[in-house]
Write a protein that binds this DNA or RNA. Structure first.
Lengths: 141, 141
DNA sequence: GATAGGCCTTCCACTAACGGGAAGGTCAAG
DNA sequence: CTTGACCTTCCCGTTAGTGGAAGGCCTATC
């Protein structure tokens, strides 16, 4: 199977597949003409990688997950720990984004957004460092 | 004011400040010895940048915001539009992360996480492409 | 005066995870 | 034979900085 077909099956771009080979995540065979020859196990791994990446696992996490996947004697505890760490990380990111979101929404709500130059958004961004003023702006940042 | 002091006041690393100068976001003066000399307006801009970045605005957005901030005749509508786009972007990211989170939490919940090799997380990652099986796993990915 | 340390400078390399595009080889169809 | 769709490697670019080396400057101390 050539790279194009492998890409179609795994739903990964060919560029990504070449990259994954380069960093040693997969090692497809080679045809006599130099073309990569993907076995179904390779395509399977690629799909695995695509799913793990879609769950936000880093490449290095994926490398570990893949080796655990291949290791028939692994303990599920190790995988669960990885997943839990990933969940924590995702939660952290969500919380950070949520804080941004709230501040942004608040500022947008304050801004008239018309032809006048007065803008609470810029005013807030440019405000002096927070010397613990009471109730001026909702400064989450 | 030297870069160390500017860093302390703006709460940005010196490295970041040098980078911001390099890409033209600020242009501090120079002392005779070659040291950067930051005016209070420079430090003010740096704080502005720190806040805008903390809200998730890209460097290029920050460049625009800064120029709008300096432009006394700007229309607040333009700023509001930028902020709204940013809000949309943040919402998009939150939604994506939330989907990951749900799938991860589900998989973690399914996994015994003990010394046994059976692991639903790996099983799910490695499952065949979704041929619309009914009720097998909760595949969000 | 010498030296130590703590600043500051520039420059280069590196990060994550690819994407774009050039230059060129291969293959099947018409 | 040519065309067009594949494939190959190689190199550069992305975002927003971070790390480190080599070296200059400044102040204090011995």
């Amino acid at each position: 199977m050539n790279i194009g077909e492998a890409a179609a099956h795994s739903r990964l771009p060919a560029k990504t597949i070449r990259y994954y080979e380069e960093i040693g995540l997969i090692t497809p065979l080679r045809d006599l003409n130099g073309y990569r020859a993907f076995r179904s196990s390779d395509v399977h791994k690629l799909s695995f990688l695509g799913r793990a990446r879609a769950l936000g696992f880093s490449i290095e996490d994926c490398r570990t997950l893949l080796s655990l996947y291949e290791d028939q004697g692994r303990e599920s505890a190790e995988v669960k720990m990885l997943a839990r760490n990933q969940l924590t990380e995702v939660d952290r990111k969500i919380a950070a984004l949520q804080a941004m979101r709230d501040t942004l929404a608040y500022l947008i709500d304050c801004c008239a957004g018309d032809h006048r130059p007065d803008c609470p958004i810029l005013a807030d961004l440019g405000a002096e460092a927070q010397p613990e003023r009471s109730g001026a702006t909702k400064r989450t940042v």
